[in-house]
């Protein structure tokens, strides 16, 4: 019984307080009156009404100031906490894993090998340039260069072999991505749409799926490049066997193809790929997807809206 009465009382009090807090001036008046009553009792003898008024005014001012400050402090704290909580929730919702660890390691092997290959191959192609002599001598002469080039070649070949066989055949993600990467009629329409957009004939950029035509081009360029470079490279690495089997002309063709395709690869990487993942104003100085494999919701909506829609649909059907 007592408990019920107490809770009832409390509820009533809380209601009253709420009502008071809704009206600042009423609250102020209440406090003022009670203060006057209290003080009048204490300073009954020898103190006139005016002095009491003055004291109460001063007390009220101080009290009100303290009340406002405390309120502000609390509100700030509460807002900050709310914001933090909100951000955390949003972050979890907004990142999308684009590349798994396996694929990221493949990409890292690929670019280390290719950079090493470009760095040791270009001075040989452009041997007349002064910088070529500098690079070759700085690395320890032509012998060291050829060994470094072969190390790069082994790295690239291992990565390419792994990607084409094990990753594409035995990994679910590999199989899925391979299918997604196949050129489709939509890519042609996307190119046309992009050209329209570039020239202002259309206000909309084409909507890409998991892989845009730009990324598909990159992928198949690497595929073709690897086949030409590894094929011709192997012919030249085992030059005696190649000539014995096919004649010198095969090695000459391999050398020409290796040299020319090498330049094409280097230019495509340094200009095209670097623009798309480094220099382009949207990602400058670098898109971090190669490192953490993640895209934010904004990036997904801008670059891969169709994939975003698909992921969201999947989530909905699951839940």
């Amino acid at each position: 019984m007592d408990d019920i009465e107490k809770t009832k009382k409390k509820e009533e009090e809380a209601k009253e307080q709420k009502a008071f807090s809704n009206n600042d001036s009423r609250l102020k008046e209440e406090i003022r009156q009670s203060l006057i009553k209290d003080l009048e009792k204490k300073v009954d003898d020898g103190v006139d009404g005016e002095v009491t008024e003055e004291m109460v005014d001063e007390l009220m001012a101080q009290f009100w100031k303290a009340k406002e400050e405390t309120l502000e402090k609390f509100l700030k704290k509460k807002r900050r906490e709310e914001k933090r909580a909100l951000e955390g929730v949003e972050k979890q919702e907004e990142t999308f894993t684009r590349f798994g660890l396996n694929f990221r390691i493949q990409h890292m092997t690929l670019f280390t090998s290719v950079l090493l290959l470009i760095f040791t191959g270009m001075p040989e192609k452009f041997h007349e340039a002064g910088i070529s002599g500098f690079i070759i001598n700085a690395l320890g002469g032509i012998k060291v260069i050829t060994i470094l080039h072969r190390i790069g070649a082994v790295g690239l070949s291992a990565m390419f072999a792994y990607h084409c066989t094990i990753y594409t055949i035995f990994f679910r993600q590999g199989r899925r991505d391979f299918v997604e990467l196949l050129p489709m009629p939509k890519d042609l329409f996307d190119v046309i749409q992009m050209i329209k957009y570039f020239f202002g004939l259309s206000k909309e950029r084409p909507k890409f799926g998991r892989f845009s035509y730009i990324e598909k081009f990159d992928y198949w360029a690497v595929y073709w490049g690897c086949m030409v470079m590894i094929g011709s490279g192997v012919i030249m690495w085992f030059e005696v066997e190649s000539i014995n089997l096919f004649g010198k002309v095969v090695v000459d063709i391999a050398k020409e193809a290796h040299s020319d395709e090498g330049l094409l690869c280097a230019l495509a990487i340094l200009i095209w790929h670097f623009y798309n993942v480094h220099l382009n104003p949207r990602v400058f100085p670098m898109s971090w997807v190669w490192w953490n494999g993640k895209l934010t919701k904004d990036e997904m909506l801008e670059e891969h809206p169709l994939e975003y829609e698909r992921i969201m649909e999947k989530k909905e059907t699951k839940s």
Partner: peptide, 18 residues
């Protein structure tokens, strides 16, 4: 220098200008 070279080395031009 290239041990095991056979007669195929003699086929075609050595000094090729592409």
């Amino acid at each position: 220098c290239h041990p095991g070279a056979n007669i195929n080395f003699a086929k075609g031009k050595i000094h090729v200008n592409p």
